[in-house]
Simulated scan of single mutants.
Amino acid sequence: MNFNNKKVLITGASRGIGKATALAFAEKGATVGINYRSNTEQAQKTCAELPGNGHHLFKYDVSKKEETEALIKDFVSHYGKLDILVNNAGISIFHDIDEVDFEHWTNAWENTFKTNLFAVANTSYWAAQAMMKSGGGRIVNVSSRGAFRGEPTKPAYGASKAAMNAMSQSLAKKLAPYKIYVGVVAPGFTETEMAAVTLTSAERENLLRESPFQRMAQPKEVAHAVLFLASEGAEYASGTIIDVNGASYLRS
């Protein structure tokens, strides 16, 4: 895969899957815009690690609809075009229905959907406007196996990702005549910095038992699937949802 001269915007790209995806695109010749919300130091470190030149930081909170428009317009103003958008930013909040109060419950739903669904819808809207003017592009959304298997301790997370999948497939149909191709990557639990900090030993053991590989996904494995959907030659895969979960959850 060759992404020379391609301008790529990745949301939530300062660490984890977003960082791995930024590195993967840069290694293949792309110029990468790293979107992040608050951790400037981490974003700067990630940007400094990218091979090649011209990479840039874009500090915007995509959960705020007015900032999604500003982000895309800033990116296009800086680079002249937007070839590929990767919607990776997401949050996950525990809200067990049998344990939390109603305020916690409703806040979890509202905040999760703002970032995991509405932000994706809004950045996709503004990206599509730019791509229609420039002759096409790619949008790749990062979902989760939780969209299919359910998330009993984080139902808003599973629901938001399921809605993202449906939206992505709708956009794949609508945007195809404009040569804008939309795909989804649905990872299982991935070995990120956050996982290393938040997982207990018992939780980690349970996760390892879920896959016949007896390990979690590496961020670069998820990034590989993102790059495939964004690559030239993958146009007819528009609307596809690629599972990257190590056979931990198989859907028919």
Rank of each mutant, 00 (worst) to 15 (best):
N2P: 00
G12W: 00
R15S: 14
G16K: 02
G16N: 04
I17S: 09
I17L: 09
A22H: 03
L23H: 01
A26Q: 08
E27I: 04
A30T: 02
I34P: 05
Y36V: 05
N39E: 06
K45W: 03
A48P: 03
P51G: 09
N53A: 13
H56W: 12
K59H: 09
Y60I: 10
V62N: 11
V62E: 13
K65N: 13
E67Q: 15
A70Q: 14
L71W: 01
D83C: 05
I84R: 00
V86P: 03
A89T: 00
G90K: 00
F94P: 15
H95Y: 09
F102M: 12
F102T: 03
W105N: 00
W109G: 06
N111G: 09
V120G: 03
V120M: 06
N122T: 12
Y125L: 14
A128F: 05
Q129F: 14
A130Y: 04
M131T: 03
M131W: 05
M132T: 01
G135E: 12
R138D: 08
V140F: 01
V142T: 08
S143C: 12
S144A: 05
R145M: 14
R145F: 07
A147P: 03
R149P: 00
E151R: 07
K154I: 12
P155Y: 05
P155G: 03
P155I: 13
G158Q: 07
A159M: 10
M167Y: 14
S170C: 15
A172C: 09
K173D: 11
A176Q: 13
A176H: 10
P177K: 06
Y178N: 13
Y181D: 07
E193A: 10
M194V: 13
A196F: 04
V197N: 11
T198R: 10
L199Q: 14
T200S: 15
R204W: 02
E205N: 15
L208Y: 15
L208W: 01
L208I: 07
F213W: 12
M216Q: 07
Q218V: 06
Q218N: 09
Q218T: 04
K220P: 00
L227R: 01
F228P: 09
S231N: 11
G233V: 03
E235V: 10
T240C: 15
T240F: 04
T240Y: 05
A247R: 11
L250E: 12
L250A: 08
S252W: 07
S252G: 10
